[in-house]
Design a protein around this nucleic acid. Structure first.
Lengths: 206, 206
DNA sequence: GTCTATAATAGGATAGAC
DNA sequence: GTCTATCCTATTATAGAC
């Protein structure tokens, strides 16, 4: 048990940065910056500055340095995405339609952010392959988690577990790829097509 | 007309690096390194070293520096992917099967390279969004080009142009996302599922 | 076209006072 | 827990000889 002064709300809903503890501010800053600039494109000093923290504080909470911080940032992005995905899938009786609407929601978020707020982990994850084992492994776990959520929703809708697991792979892959293409092309179209075709694919398996 | 000493073959087939001109060696080294490490993770000096060239030569051919070189590397990766895609689609009468085999070929290449040889441009492209306009635009053009090739193959197989264009978006997105997931997870499964479901999706539209 | 040397700056990480 | 100052190395890019 740590005696942390945390009477304030610290859910990710819409807590003002100023009300968060130092550690959380650092993780959030790292998450946002690495999402947009990747691991190598984001500096430790930039993270500290954006988080209104000092280098001393940063290395106090993350003695493992940049790599440990990146792993925490991936975990944070994971939770963020899980929350959004659950909000779309939880009470939906038609998962095909729910997934399509989720994809269109991603397109909205992208367009509003001028195409920079894509998947919270893919940029960092892709740059970590074969080079940053802890980061890569955190990202792999996140992807597996997301597939699990999708598969669960498909099973609930009557699809057999084995088939649902297979479909979940393609659902997540297609969402990832479409978001990447949408960002690079600065266009909603890839995500709109993903929404349409994923719905068709899921419907074809019922 | 430039008077270049180029009696040697310079197709991308299997030319030994030593037989290439300095400029080509630099572009190839940049392409490979940025594919694996991204734009920010790859140093100009590392590129020069890997290409057996000096910094002076590098800046002679690319006075625009790293950004101009990255753009050339994207163009190179684009041509590489186009060649592979054409080889799979060109004489195929069944595009669904051809795309599935292409996806499995990507999985082979990935596994053989210990999951580092993924899409030649996606890492650099994703890291360029909103930060390196020339690089991003070259990547966007490449994606559009690939979609055009897929759409063409689908039209040849009897699918209406409008529908083929839509499907091509999802085909490329899914391949991109599945390759990303396969790399991060160090597993063939995402690409195997993409192969299966893309074939189903295309077949459902004939 | 190619080479070496170097300028100018930013990178990650640490030390030690408070 | 937080702060500043600093070490050491790497970075992109340029200069000017050859």
């Amino acid at each position: 048990m740590k005696e942390s002064p945390r009477s304030n709300a610290e859910q990710s809903g819409s807590t003002p940065e100023s009300a968060l503890g130092t550690r959380d501010r650092i993780v959030r800053a790292a998450s946002v910056l690495m999402q947009r600039q990747g691991y190598d494109g984001t500096g430790i000093k930039q993270i500290a500055q954006e988080a209104d923290a000092t280098l001393g504080s940063l290395y106090h909470f993350f003695p493992g340095g940049k790599q440990e911080l990146a792993t925490a940032a991936i975990d944070h992005g994971n939770r963020e995405f899980v929350e959004a995905l659950n909000a779309s899938l939880d009470g939906a009786e038609d998962p095909a339609r729910a997934l399509a609407e989720f994809a269109l929601g991603l397109a909205d978020r992208l367009a509003e952010s001028d195409w920079v707020d894509g998947c919270p982990i893919s940029t960092t994850a892709l740059g970590s392959v074969g080079r940053l084992p802890d980061v890569q492994s955190a990202a792999a776990q996140a992807f597996a988690h997301w597939r699990g959520l999708v598969s669960g929703a498909l099973v609930k809708a009557g699809i057999a577990r084995a088939e649902a697991d297979e479909l979940a792979h393609t659902v997540i892959s297609t969402l990832e790829g479409a978001e990447l293409a949408a960002q690079v092309s600065a266009s909603r179209v890839p995500l709109e097509m993903a929404a349409k075709h994923l719905a068709q694919l899921v419907d074809a398996h019922r």
